[in-house]
């Protein structure tokens, strides 16, 4: 186990390094950073001075060596937009994103298990058809549209909730629901399908022949057995949420998290902040992947960690 985690951490470090190298190359190929970051009115002297200040006058391999050195010490330089260390900005915004993702995905997990399980009890029944249709609807609605509709209905028309911003629990409701709907739909479909599969297995007959109630069979036997596939799909949703959903949802609702900050940093040509954000997300994805593998092994002893 320990050996596995160490090996995965090493592999993960390579992945993070690969991602940072890619970001480095892309941000320097995508255009002249100096032109992006300085106003149009800057003089040639100002440009040269700025270029020297951030080290862009050096040959590319020296730039990369310095960059790699900075990455290792988690120093991504100062954000040009905020005029303070980029990592500081990331660490300040990260908890907001974590709160949004935890609320949204947590809610989706908690709701999808009973919904999928009930649907699976009678495949083709009324509850099942309703759940499946709603799930398809949930999957079909893009989040940017859903978010705007939610603002229109609940904030503008009904005036129940604030349109956007951050601070009170009420501000969290709409973004969390918007973020949760797609994962909720996918989770529910997955739980339903896996439950139907599981309920048809022989060990369920054994459990019934033992005299166990259906409720206990669901709770103790089948639920545990769908946990491994459920875990992998929720890990995947978590990664998607961190690296995609939050960008859209935070932008729509003005939620000051990492996703919104990424959009703003890109718009402002804030090279160093973009690098810090991409590095942090890549790091989180690697850690989530390792955690999922370890938890799967704890649930299913047949899984070989190799």
């Amino acid at each position: 186990m320990i050996e596995f985690i160490l090996r995965r951490l090493f592999q993960g470090a390579l992945v993070v390094l690969g991602v940072t190298a890619t970001v480095f190359v892309v941000t320097r190929l995508a255009g002249d950073p100096v032109a992006l970051m300085l106003p149009l009115s800057a003089t040639a002297e100002q440009r040269a001075a700025f270029s020297a200040q951030i080290g862009l006058d050096q040959p590319i391999w020296i730039q990369f060596a310095r960059y790699a050195q900075d990455v290792v010490t988690l120093d991504f330089g100062d954000s040009l937009w905020q005029r303070r260390p980029a990592m500081e900005v990331v660490l300040e915004r990260l908890p907001n994103t974590a709160l949004l993702v935890a609320t949204g995905l947590g809610g989706a997990v908690l709701l999808s298990i009973p919904m999928g399980a009930v649907a699976a009890l009678r495949p083709g029944g009324l509850v099942d058809r309703l759940t499946t249709s709603l799930s398809l609807l949930g999957l079909a609605m893009p989040q940017f549209w859903l978010g705007l509709m939610a603002i229109m209905v609940f904030s503008v028309m009904l005036k129940w909730l604030p349109t956007s911003g951050f601070g009170t629990p009420a501000h969290l409701v709409l973004p969390a629901i918007t973020l949760a709907l797609t994962p909720l739909a996918r989770f529910t479909m997955m739980v339903r399908a896996a439950m139907i599969d599981e309920l048809n297995k022989q060990y369920v007959q054994t459990a019934r022949a033992k005299g166990l109630t259906l409720r206990r069979i669901l709770r103790v036997h089948t639920l545990r057995n769908i946990l491994v596939p459920f875990l992998s799909i929720s890990g995947w949703e978590l990664i998607t949420a961190l690296s995609g959903y939050t960008v859209v949802v935070e932008t729509v609702f003005g939620w000051p998290g990492l996703g919104l900050t990424a959009v703003q940093a890109i718009q402002r040509g804030d090279l160093f902040l973009v690098q810090a954000i991409v590095f942090s997300i890549a790091f989180m994805i690697v850690v989530i992947g390792i955690l999922m593998d370890v938890i799967s092994k704890l649930i299913d002893p047949r899984i070989e960690l190799n």
Binding site: Y203, Q205, G211, L212, R302
Partner: peptide, 30 residues
């Protein structure tokens, strides 16, 4: 009555036990 007075064993022992529960847990359940 079912499970207490009348019990049953099945054809395929390879799939008749829950793969993710220890033998002890499944026995103790009964």
């Amino acid at each position: 009555i079912w499970g207490r007075e009348i019990t049953m064993i099945f054809q395929n022992p390879m799939t008749s036990l829950n793969p993710l529960m220890t033998i002890g847990a499944q026995l103790q359940e009964a």
